[in-house]
Amino acid sequence: MDAAQAVLKISDMPFPAVDEQQGTVEGAGPAPRADNRDTVGEPFVEDPRMTCRDVNVYYGEKHAIRDVSIDIAHNEVLAMIGPSGCGKSTFLRCLNRMNDTVDTCRVSGRILLDGLDIYGRLVDVVPLRARVGMVFQKPNPFPKSIYDNIAYGPRIHGLAESRSELDGIVENSLKKAGLWQEVHDRLDQPGTGLSGGQQQRLCIARAIAVQPEVILMDEPCSALDPIATATVEDLIAELREQYTIVIVTHNMQQAARVSRRTAYFHLGALIEVGPTDRIFTNPRHRLTEDYITGRFG
């Protein structure tokens, strides 16, 4: 047989087509069917900071989150990914009861923070939101000075007894957010005058100032340029030493870079949770694989 014939022999054999019904590739391992909505992977951890069980969220008639159960560990960065409308931001907002502000929203199931049911009758959401802070997609500094942006929370929560103590909190928070060097000589200037990346780090410093245990981040870099994004991602890696961070992102490379565990949501269901390196090299669920490889249907 000559080379040309040999070429035909091999290249005539097609690579196997993905079986749409079974959700597997012929010869592949036991991937769950594409229509299976049970969570696969490792959603639970030992000694969790937050425990979520059978969480369902409704906006009026719309069933936005379906039976989500997951633990969030101490000092971990958990990334939540999924297509638009999959419920990842809705779920994030359940973790500090931000959904309470939506009239039609109803949450069922249990969400515990250090064993405390955050939806308990006696829970005051103001201190809860200090313990579970939040950073939003678009930097939203108060129209106040840089100093007052940070000092606002500690003042209303009574965390400082003197001006010098408050000064210490402001300095410490800005240092933790990697912003101190850039702003220490202009603390009296408006926070809104900073660049986008600096504003976002100011918002992170503001969340840190009230001594949270968990920081929720809803697409914190989507309004930032690549350099500001890299700075914030670097900051997330440092903050992990002291805080638990849950980040929602549309940027899969960002999820891969910053998080230790990744959770994939699809149509309100938690499809797969696992170590980030495994999710991005060898996901177990067909839907996760399709989403992260761009084979969206």
């Binding site: 000559d2 080379a3 070429v7 035909l8 091999i10 690579f15 993905v18 399709d290």
Partner: peptide, 29 residues
């Protein structure tokens, strides 16, 4: 399922790679 440019590039690469495989098989034979 939508095919991205990237997936088409991978398909092309696979086909090219199989040609190499066949040539090497031929050399060994």
């Amino acid at each position: 399922v939508y095919q991205l440019t990237f997936h088409r590039e991978i398909e092309r690469l696979k086909n090219r790679f199989m040609v190499l495989g066949s040539l090497v098989e031929d050399r060994v034979r």
